[in-house]
Amino acid sequence: MIWAYLYNIVFYASCGVTVLATILMISRHNAVHALLYLIISSLSLAIIFYLLGAAFAAALEVIVYAGAVMILFVFVVMMLNQGQRSAAHEAAWLPARGWILPSVLAAILLSLLLIGMYSDQPLQPYGVHGVAVKDVGIALFGPYVLVVELSSFLLLSGLIGAFHIARKMPSHMSSNELEEVDHG
């Protein structure tokens, strides 16, 4: 039956891309290359979520991981820029081989996406029960409303904590140095 065959191809190809991208990610020396592979890993994981019947979770995976979290990492990589040495290192790594493998993996993901878009029926095999967004929303704001409240606490404390920790001290001095200046 051609239908189950197609689902098999998309599912196991996504699994393979995820594992391969993750292995390549943890073995990179360059932080930006690792982030490229992390994006590929998140995207293929989103395809797997979709195939498991969780379309809402797939969209969130793309928006939050491949979008928001990745922007945070890129900003920190920019702020950790170590000047000339880092630039020379980048120049040594810039040749195309750094981009070939992520491009191949992303092309596989794109072909899987096209297969999913142009197939006649939704990709849903026997034994996998899709959960509609409506059911998730009803459960989330019904019996699980405490999870929403705890998440808002967590995000607010994370925001305040990150702002306080990463704040720049005035005039490039740590608080200890400022105290010493005051006492001296």
């Binding site: 969780a54 809402f56 979770a57 969130l60 995976e61 939050v64 991981y65 928001a68 979290v69 945070l72 990492f73 920190v76 702020m79 950790l80 959960v131 059911d135 998730v136 009803i138 459960a139 989330l140 699980y144 999870v147 705890l150 998440s151 967590l154 995000l155 404390s157 994370g158 925001l159 904590g161 990150a162 702002f163 920790i165 990463a166």
Partner: peptide, 26 residues
């Protein structure tokens, strides 16, 4: 739907963790 609700909790936790962790990295 409980699986997706816990997934929402997990990504919220991940976002808060990465914000504080990257602040500590800086």
């Amino acid at each position: 739907p409980e699986g997706q609700i816990m997934f929402l909790a997990v990504i919220t936790l991940g976002a808060a963790e990465v914000a504080v962790g990257l602040g500590l990295t800086l």
